[in-house]
Simulated scan of single mutants.
Amino acid sequence: MTARGRFISIEGGEGVGKSTQIAALAAFIEQKGFEVVLTREPGGTEGAETIRQLVLGGSAERWLPRAEALLFASARSDHVERLIEPALASGKWVISDRFIDSSRAYQGAGSGLSDADIMALHHIGSRGMLPDRTLVLRLDSKEAANRAAARDQNQPDRIQGRVETFHADVDIAFVSFAESEQRVRLVDASGAPHEVTMRLLAEISDLLEPA
């Protein structure tokens, strides 16, 4: 039987460098002989990408918190069933740019819904699936905001463009997850990209060891 693959989610606020680090992490894992599938949330499948356009586009008031949370949960359900689970079952590693912890931080702590409500939706939609390891990139808020502004050319989507206090609540939530759940690790995203990559690799070294 093919050994089940590993599932890693990369999390963090806006402008922390997730895309750069995901590419570097995938390259290293592939050098170790594993096949890697890169994906993102919301998105990853045709249906989930359609929902992505709905939740990230339009005005800030387009969706109220409960509706937004339901849309994210629906996208994730399709993503898990059609892409993540089959890839893991075939022995591939999956690295996702965001997963359930983003919903917990953004639609939960940031928007005022309870963590229990977000996880209840996750249990219904995705059978409560959790990554083997969740790596949260953290960066000084001002530096992150400057990076995000440059990346988005000052045209953020409806979630990226929310007020500073919202994003501060998101960061606090990520820290709380790491304090209470062993799978969640905080990683300093400051410094040269290769230095950040080495910090990430240190947090998954045990997963790369033979079973």
Rank of each mutant, 00 (worst) to 15 (best):
R138I: 12
F166D: 06
A145T: 11
P210I: 04
A3V: 12
Q155Y: 03
Q21M: 05
E85R: 15
P86F: 00
I10M: 10
S19G: 13
R4V: 14
F99G: 04
A26I: 12
G13E: 08
V184E: 09
G17R: 10
G43Y: 04
A26E: 11
Q31C: 13
H167T: 12
E164N: 09
S103K: 01
A75Q: 03
L200S: 01
R185K: 14
A144I: 05
A24H: 08
L56I: 11
T134Q: 06
A69C: 05
G125D: 07
Q21P: 12
V136M: 02
E49Q: 11
V55L: 05
I124F: 09
V184R: 14
M129A: 05
E164C: 06
T197R: 14
F72W: 13
H194V: 13
S9R: 10
T39R: 13
R158N: 11
A3T: 09
D171S: 14
D206Y: 00
Q31V: 08
A26Q: 13
R98I: 07
F34Y: 04
T20I: 07
R66I: 06
G47P: 12
G13C: 10
E164I: 10
T20D: 09
S96D: 09
R40F: 00
L135T: 08
I95G: 06
L130W: 00
A144D: 01
D132M: 01
P131I: 06
G47R: 11
A69T: 04
A75F: 00
F166L: 08
S180Y: 02
L201C: 06
E181C: 02
L137H: 01
D140Y: 00
G58M: 02
A26V: 11
E181M: 03
K18V: 12
E181D: 12
E209Q: 15
F28H: 14
S176L: 11
H122A: 15
L88F: 10
S74A: 15
A145Y: 02
A60Q: 15
S102E: 03
S77Q: 09
E14R: 14
D97H: 11
I51S: 07
G110V: 01
F7T: 11
D97T: 13
G15V: 05
R138A: 08
F7S: 08
I118S: 15
R4F: 06
R76N: 11
V16W: 00
I8S: 04
A148G: 15
L70K: 11
R158A: 04
E46R: 15
F174E: 12
A27C: 00
T2E: 03
V37I: 14
R199M: 06
R133S: 00
T134H: 05
A23G: 11
L200D: 02
L38I: 08
I29C: 13
L113M: 09
V80C: 13
E68M: 03
P210G: 03
D171F: 02
A202L: 02
A145Q: 09
E209W: 04
R183L: 03
A89T: 15
G161C: 03
A87I: 09
H167N: 11
A120G: 12
D152E: 14
R40K: 11
P131Q: 10
L54F: 05
T165V: 06
E181G: 03
G112V: 00
I172G: 15
R183M: 04
S96N: 14
R162I: 08
G128E: 03
T39W: 10
D132P: 01
H79G: 12
P65W: 01
A149R: 10
V36L: 07
R52I: 04
F28T: 15
P210M: 02
L64Q: 13
Q153G: 14
S90R: 15
S19C: 02
F174P: 13
